[in-house]
Design a protein around this nucleic acid. Sequence first.
DNA 1: CGAGACCGGGTAACTAGCCT
DNA 2: AGGCTAGTTACCCGGTCTCG
Length: 273
Amino acid sequence: MNYQTLQPHADLASLIKCYWTLEIPAQMEAPKQRIVPDGCIEMAFILGDDIKRYTSDTNFIIQPRAMVIGQITQPFFIEPTGHVNSFAIRFYPYGFANFIKIPIKELANKETPISALFDKKEAEALTQKIVNAPNTGVRITIVEDFLLSKLKDASTIDRIVKSTIDTLFLTKGSTSIDVIVKDQSTRRRNLERKFSKQVGISPKRLGKVFRLQAALKMMLLKHPENLTQIAYESEYYDQAHFIKDFKELTGTNPKEFLSDDQMILSSLIYSKD
DNA sequence: CGAGACCGGGTAACTAGCCT
DNA sequence: AGGCTAGTTACCCGGTCTCG
C-alpha cells in the first residue's frame, strides 16, 4: 500500500488542504473500508479498478470515476474490485463552494460526477487529461490549472464562516453556536444561511464532526487506558454522549472500533492530513 | 459489587420555513 | 437580511448491562 499527501500551490492553499494518492495492489479478499466524516469535501479520480460503495448491507453502487464527495454525516463503506489507484483533492469545509454554481448542500452524503458540476465537455476533457497524465505531479498541475480557471473570485470566502469554522476546529466543536454568534456581527439565522451556502451542513453538525475527529485521533495515537478518558478529553460531556455520536458518525461503537485493526487502518488512511 | 460501557427520555439548543 | 415559530436534534442525567 502506498498513501501519499502533497501540498497545494500557494494560490489555492486557502481552499485546498492537500492532494492525496493511494495505491493498493489487487487482493483476493479486498476488505470493506470504512470512511468516517472529517468535515472536508473531496474531488476524487479513480485511476485503477472500479470501487463499490455500499448503500446498505447488501446493495452497492459503482462510484463514478471522476466525482466530488460532499460533506458526509454518516460512515461510507467502500470496497475495491481490483487494484486501487486514486488521486484526490481534499478541500477545506468552505473550500469548494466557490467553484460551482449549484448549492453545495446538494452534494452532501453522496458522490456527484464532475460532469454534473461543470460543463460536460470540460469535465470529460479534465478527466481524460488526469487519467492519461504520467504521474501525480502532472495531475496536480492539470487540476490546479482547471480550478484556477473556474475560480471567479478568490476572496469570496466569508470571513465569518471561516472564523466560525476555525473556532469550532480549535475547540473541538465544543463552542456553542450562540457563543460564536455573540462574538460576530451576524445573526444566528444568517450564519446558518451562510453555512448552508458555503459548507453544505449546519455549524453544529460540522462541530460534531470535528469533535469526533479529535476523539478518533486521540484513540488511534494514544492507545488510551479507557474510553471515558477519551470522552472527557475530547470535550464530550459524558461517555453516553460520546458513544452516541461515535455510533452515528462511524457506524460502530468505540470499543469495537479499537478492536478491529482493519477499521483503524482505513481511518488512518483517510483522516491523515 | 465496582468500574467502565452503553441506552433512553425530558428539556434546552439548534435548524429551517415563512413572513416582512 | 432579520424575526418568529414549529419541528428536530443535542445535551444532560438518570438508569441498566457486562465483565473481572
